[in-house]
Amino acid sequence: MTFGEKLYRLRKERGMSQEALAQELGVSRQAISRWELEEVAPDTGNVLAASRLFGVSTDYLLRDECEQEADTPAVRRAERSLQEWQAAVGKGVLCRVLWLTLFALFHQYRLEQLETGGSPVPIPWLLVPALALAVWTWRLNWRYIQEGGERRALLESDLLAMACAFALPYLLAWVPGGWEILLGLLAAVVCMVKSVKTLRVHYGLPWGKRP
């Protein structure tokens, strides 16, 4: 779509005549007509004025391949960045949920062993996913730190969450029915909310109610 076609469409969407548009831009009606017919091209000043008047970018007005504002390179870059930030936060949340799952499996196994008289030692097959998860966590946090993230805020909430998930079931051993595991996980989730908030705020994603 050419500049003239876009100018015509924007003018019609606003319900403006060529005379009204000419008055807004400080040019003659004939100039508007010639721009829309592609007989001449407007100068830089007029393109900028049209951009401000219609609330669109100059990229949109001047690039024939842009059928709408969303097709401009700046908007596409912003969309890609938003998707990358959302993916980074999503990976962070998934990583922390997997840690809680491992703690839950460990304590479930420990309680079963206590009931059957076995030895409550860590399950060997839990060690492999724990090591893999530790490496993934380190990589995610390293990227966060490299991008200027506040390491202390994230580290404190994560360590507190893991302490709750691991230690509370021991401290609440008097609770019957295995509920101590659930209570430990709930306490850990409360702490992890701060980690998620830290990640979202760092990547410029909304948190809480918008003003």
Rank of each mutant, 00 (worst) to 15 (best):
A87T: 09
Y60V: 06
F54P: 10
R143F: 01
L154W: 12
Y8M: 01
R200Y: 04
P129V: 03
E156C: 09
E36F: 12
P124Y: 09
P176E: 01
L48S: 15
P169G: 11
L98N: 03
Y144M: 04
A20D: 11
E150A: 06
D64A: 11
R152F: 13
S57T: 15
K194A: 10
L185Y: 07
R80P: 01
P206Y: 00
E115P: 02
A31W: 11
R152Y: 11
L126P: 02
R143I: 02
L171D: 10
K194L: 04
E147H: 10
K91C: 03
W179F: 05
A104S: 09
A20G: 08
W85Q: 05
V193T: 10
A31S: 15
E38F: 12
R14K: 14
Q68R: 13
A167N: 04
A132I: 05
N46P: 08
T137A: 01
C191R: 13
V190G: 03
R96W: 00
L21R: 00
T137D: 01
L82W: 09
L94A: 11
E84N: 03
P120Q: 12
A87Q: 12
I145F: 12
P206I: 00
L140V: 03
V135E: 04
K194S: 07
F3T: 15
E180Q: 05
G118T: 09
F103W: 08
S57A: 14
K91M: 05
L182E: 10
G45A: 11
K12R: 02
L160G: 09
S28H: 14
W125G: 03
K194C: 03
S195G: 10
T2A: 10
D71A: 14
E13F: 07
L205G: 00
K209C: 07
P124W: 12
Y109F: 09
P129G: 05
H107V: 01
N46S: 14
R52C: 08
P176N: 04
L183H: 08
L53S: 06
Q23H: 06
A165W: 01
E19T: 15
L131V: 02
R14T: 03
S157L: 05
E38Q: 14
V189G: 07
K197R: 06
F54V: 13
Q146D: 07
L82K: 10
G26D: 14
W125M: 06
T137E: 02
S51H: 13
T101M: 08
D43G: 15
V56N: 12
E5Y: 02
L168D: 06
H107A: 02
E5H: 04
A22M: 14
G184E: 02
A78K: 04
L61R: 13
A167S: 06
E13V: 04
R11S: 14
L205I: 01
P124E: 11
A49K: 15
G15I: 00
V93W: 02
K6S: 11
M16E: 05
F166S: 03
G90T: 06
S195A: 14
C66N: 06
L140W: 05
L48T: 13
L61N: 14
V121H: 08
T198D: 01
R77L: 09
V189L: 15
D59Q: 15
Y144F: 15
C164K: 06
D43I: 10
L82N: 07
A50L: 15
I181C: 12
L102Q: 10
F54I: 11
L182M: 10
I32E: 03
P169M: 12
T44Y: 15
P206Q: 00
Q83K: 04
A187E: 09
L37G: 15
C95R: 00
S195E: 07
